[in-house]
Design a protein around this nucleic acid. Structure first.
Length: 984
RNA sequence: GGUGGCGUAGCUCAGUUGGCAUGAGAGCAGGCGAUCGAUAAUCGCCCGGUCGCAAGUUCGAUUCUUGCCGCCACCA
């Protein structure tokens, strides 16, 4: 026995100690850590650390460089970051080159507004400069915000669709389409303002109240009526069409009916009208034929295919066509594109139609599509100012809106009008001059989806691999773009899997790709026209020449230079030999720009490669970027530029409505970052099932903050109890660990396996829930609570304590790695606060996920599942005792358990441990003769003996030591150990 | 209107190849309590769901089928 003074009991308790603070203070700590990472150039370090590893390429879809980032943009970028970081930690070389979509209408419109009236007199080059500046500004801000979110990537050198190299490549790729025979010039209806005499984009029209004449027009059947139904023999049969744009009637070339509708022939005196059966009564009433239609015959719409009618008054055929776009009820019925919008808003509010749709291919989108399918001319006898051209009988020179009334009068006089009335509806207007617009076919450049490419690739790429795999058998005609795309869609992996179906459906019915835009902020369509003979020069060699100029000077060269300077020297028109040229004024659709990225980026950055392993974007990109990228991939490499496509849903609020900035329902990512930290936003993304729409609200973010704190505290507890622990020196071999410590490690193994698998499958929400549940239930509520006694009161270097520390160390080390892709900042902070180890990487982001063992000790886990079941029963009993005021703290309790059969055996095996597992002072185990499966009997009484001053357990041995009279036998022994160590 | 998707506790998610733990789980939130040696922490107990609605198939459906409703995206 020592004669020294007894130890200060408080000081012999091993309380947690760590530099890892409880409060995260993310608002300040995150920027500080970002600065540190920037100084050490962590991204480059990560890249170097993975040199030579298998590559995994996520190709960034470029966000639009217009405004500040939106919550949806944040969701997208954070998900991408999860992918890249987790692939790095799975051991891949996974670089990330972010990009920006810089051209296009919204920027140009913004600049228009800023320049105001000045713009009219400005040269295109100046406008483009202003656009370029605007995009640069926006992308700088976005870059700053993305970095603030903890997203790692090549931020110093992102790709920009407006860079000279990119613009040049875009032009070259257009040349590639030309070379393969996919490009043609044709007419297609677009919004047209007859006041400003310009085409308008969808975004440039606004809907306002407008009154139009609503007319029911008779088109006489030319085909023998008895071929439809014998009952119609010898009758005067008419198709009855409805429209609110009578001025498009002179351009009528056909009538559309829905093949799956039933149609009826209704009688009116000696005339018979064909309308949709379901609308027959409504039409009859409207047109004054009585309240009930007299039906002579009924037949399916499909039966009317390709029958011939005559124009309502012109001596010209009007072809019967079948179209799914024909609907019943609502105002969309007999309409051109202009009114279809209306139907969207008002859904079948009134039955104004007839089920027979007047079709003018030059004046409506549906009309155009169906007209093209049936080989009709895209007829548009209306000039830029909205006047009928001279070929229009009776109305030449009339302005279309004024012509409406004249046409109605004319039809009334001539007998083809059955009924007309004024009709109020919403109609598109020019956003600038506020006048109503029309739909009018104008010349545009198209990429054909059905033309056979007549110039298949024969080249090899840099790796010497043949890049043509379009045709499997020599001699077969090459697939066209549509067929090629469908084939590739089959091969690509879609996540979620229904993406394939969706992509296919979209592709099947899509019309040719109109790549013309009548704008200046973009890549010009590099085509020349001969002034002498009007020949269009769309030639891939010429385009290559132009692209090389773009490469040096940006595409501004198109506007800054004369045509002659852009063409090879001495170039003459192959048709007439002329040498005077004009330049095409249209620019390329921005989707062509971004669609070019796989080639313009993946093949240009040395760390990347074509094709990409994965594209990851919102579901709106099926028709957008996924599609345009696929087209460019096919034209350039005969293959999709991606092997996998992952899509995410939209960010919506609690009511399930989409986030809207204008309605103030949006949550700004920058606000969240400022108030709560980027970690919270990232954790929110991880917690959500992104494959569906993702909900966000203040409440949800608060929950996430709570979850963050819980995980942080869990890590902090482990770190605090590892103070002074040296893994190399103090670790206890696995086989010598106490069983509950092994249990914790087995549970860790299960979670680690699960998380790894979830990362591999891009199921981050599974990672989140697995890790969060592990922290709260397995660790905090169970393991940590149970080992607390041992950690605090056992001798610091005792095997018992080191056993727990060994487990804690491995757990928190693994936790940091597994959390790293999500909690980028916090995981790194945990990493820093782990006990030093020589081979530890400078940042958790250079480390890999825990390797994981193949085998888990399932038997051990099953045993402990049984123990914890019993524990739950005991805890309930303790709660009752607490309510009865028998005990307060659970250490004041002694638990008497009665069990039978297997349960008894199990508990007996751990008899010595039970008091620690239940966190009570004493446990008495009794065997009952009850049948197997009988409920556990639990009795709770006051613990025997006195409370030990040091460990707070109750013991009958307190007071037995003279030196430490207030201590239990355990603590007396521990203090002896400590004193021994101090002497040594 | 077309195509695709979603709908399990207040919130985020599990789960059910249709019953074989017949009583649908977890965490958070809420209520009550314990502790005061993870402390702007920690632990426990309790409350909470007619698995969107309605039919059908079946001995039996939240799970299968159909229809409907609601919400979202793309498109017309």
């Amino acid at each position: 026995m020592s004669t020294e003074t007894p130890l200060d009991l408080k000081k012999t308790v091993n309380l947690p100690k760590t530099g890892f603070s409880q409060k995260a203070n993310l608002g300040q700590s995150e920027p500080a850590r970002l600065k540190k990472w920037a100084e050490m150039d962590l991204y480059a370090m990560i890249q170097r650390s993975r040199e030579g590893r298998e590559k995994f390429i996520l190709h960034d879809g470029p966000p639009y460089a217009n405004s500040d980032i939106h919550i949806g943009t944040a969701l997208n970028k954070i998900l991408k970051d999860f992918v890249v970081k987790s692939r790095v930690m799975l051991g891949f070389d996974s670089p990330y080159v972010p990009g920006y979509d810089c051209h296009g209408l919204p920027i140009e419109l913004f600049v228009d507004k800023k320049l105001g009236a000045k713009k009219a007199n400005m040269p295109a080059v100046s406008i483009r400069r202003a656009c370029r500046e605007h995009a640069s500004e926006a992308l700088k801000r976005q870059t700053r915000d993305f970095q603030r979110l903890g997203i790692f990537g090549l931020w110093d050198n992102p790709y920009m669709t407006m860079s000279n190299a990119y613009e040049a490549e875009t032009a070259r790729l257009f040349g590639r389409f030309v070379e393969r025979g996919y490009v043609y010039k044709g007419a297609r209806p677009v919004y047209w303002c007859i006041h400003d005499q310009t085409a308008l984009a969808e975004a440039e029209v606004e809907y306002r109240e407008h009154t139009s004449p609503s007319v029911y027009v008779k088109f006489p059947l030319v085909t023998d009526p008895k071929s439809i139904d014998p009952a119609l023999e010898e009758k005067k049969v008419f198709f009855l069409a409805w429209t609110t744009t009578p001025w498009t009637l002179p351009s009528n070339l056909g009538l559309a009916v829905n093949p799956i509708f039933e149609y009826a022939a209704i009688e009116n005196g000696d005339e018979v009208y064909i309308v949709a059966s379901e609308l027959a009564d409504a039409v009859a009433e409207k047109c004054g034929l009585g309240t009930e239609a007299r039906v002579l015959a009924r037949f399916p719409g499909a039966q009317l295919d390709r029958l011939e009618a005559r124009h309502a008054w012109l001596n010209r055929p009007s072809l019967l066509m079948l179209g799914e776009h024909v609907t019943l009820g609502g105002e969309a019925d007999a309409e051109t594109e202009l009114d279809v919008k209306e139907a969207r808003d008002k859904r079948a509010t009134g039955k104004a139609g007839t089920g027979v749709v007047h079709t003018a291919p030059g004046h409506g989108h549906d009309d155009f599509v169906i007209g093209t399918r049936y080989g009709l001319e895209i007829y548009c006898p209306v000039d830029n100012a909205g006047r009928f051209t001279s070929e229009v009988e009776h109305f030449a020179g009339e302005r279309v809106f004024e012509a409406n009334a004249k046409i109605v009068d004319f039809m009334r006089g001539q007998g083809s009008l059955l009924f007309s009335e004024e009709y109020a509806h919403r109609y598109p207007h020019c956003w600038r001059c506020k006048n109503p617009v029309i739909f009018r076919a104008t010349p545009q450049w198209f990429i054909s989806l059905d033309a056979r490419g007549d110039n298949t690739l024969t080249e090899t790429d840099e790796d010497g691999r043949a890049v043509s795999n379009f045709t499997e058998n020599e001699g077969d005609a090459p697939l066209n773009l549509r067929e090629g795309a469908l084939k590739e869609i089959e091969r690509v992996k879609w996540i979620p899997s229904w993406g394939r179906e969706r992509m296919k459906n979209m592709l099947k019915n899509r019309p040719d790709w109109c790549v013309s835009r009548q704008r200046v902020w973009g890549v010009p369509i590099p085509v020349f026209y001969c002034k002498g003979c009007d020949e269009a020069i769309a030639d891939s060699n010429i385009i290559k020449h132009v692209a090389d100029i773009f490469e040096r000077e940006t595409a501004d060269a198109w506007y800054a230079r004369e045509a002659r300077e852009l063409l090879p020297e001495g170039f003459a028109c192959p048709k007439c030999g002329g040498q005077d040229w004009t330049k095409e004024t249209d620019i390329l659709d921005v989707w062509f720009d971004s669609g070019s990225s796989s080639v313009a980026v993946l093949e240009k950055y040395p760390e990347l490669r074509w094709p990409a392993d994965v594209y990851l974007e919102g579901g709106d990109q099926y028709r957008g970027w996924f599609n345009s990228s696929l087209m460019v991939g096919l034209a350039s490499h005969d293959r999709a530029p991606y092997d996998r496509v992952i899509t995410h849903g939209w960010v919506i609020n609690v009511q399930g409505e989409k986030m809207s900035k204008s309605q103030g329902t949006g949550i700004s990512p920058n606000e969240v970052v400022k108030q709560s930290g980027a970690e919270i936003l990232r954790l929110w993304v991880a917690s959500s099932n992104y494959q569906e729409d993702v909900r966000v609200s203040d409440e949800i973010l608060n929950r996430i903050s709570d979850a963050y704190r819980k995980m942080r505290n869990t890590a902090r507890y482990a770190l605090g109890n590892l103070d002074g622990f040296n893994p190399a020196r103090d670790s206890v071999p696995y086989d010598e660990l106490m069983e509950i410590d092994r249990w914790a490690l087995e549970e860790l193994e299960v979670v680690a396996l699960r998380s790894r698998a979830a990362y591999e499958a891009f199921e981050f929400f599974t990672v989140y829930h697995a890790l969060y549940n592990f922290c709260t239930v397995t660790l905090s509520a169970r393991y940590f609570d149970i080992i607390k006694d041992r950690l605090y009161t056992a001798a610091p270097r005792s095997v018992a304590r080191r056993s727990a520390q060994t487990a804690l160390y491995r757990i928190v080390d693994a936790l940091a790695r597994l959390l790293a892709p999500v909690l980028v900042f916090t995981a790194d902070e945990i990493w820093e606060n782990l006990p030093r180890e020589d081979e530890r990487a400078a940042s958790v982001h250079m480390a890999e996920f825990p390797a994981g063992r193949a085998l888990v000790d399932a038997e051990l886990l099953t045993r402990w599942a049984g123990i914890f079941e019993a524990r739950d029963v005991v805890l309930r009993a303790l709660e009752e005792a607490r309510a009865a005021k028998t005990i307060g703290s659970s250490l004041e309790a002694k638990v008497i358990i009665t069990a039978s059969g297997g349960t008894h055996e199990l508990l007996k095996r751990y008899a010595g441990e039970l008091r620690y597992i239940f966190i009570v002072s004493q446990v008495e185990l009794k065997q009952s003769a009850g049948e197997a499966g009988a409920p556990l009997g639990v009795e709770v009484v006051r613990a025997d003996g006195e409370k030990c001053e040091r460990c707070w357990n109750y013991s009958v041995h307190v007071g037995e030591s003279e030196r430490y009279p207030s201590l239990c036998e355990r603590c007396v022994a521990v203090l002896g150990e400590i004193e021994g160590e101090q002497r040594a």
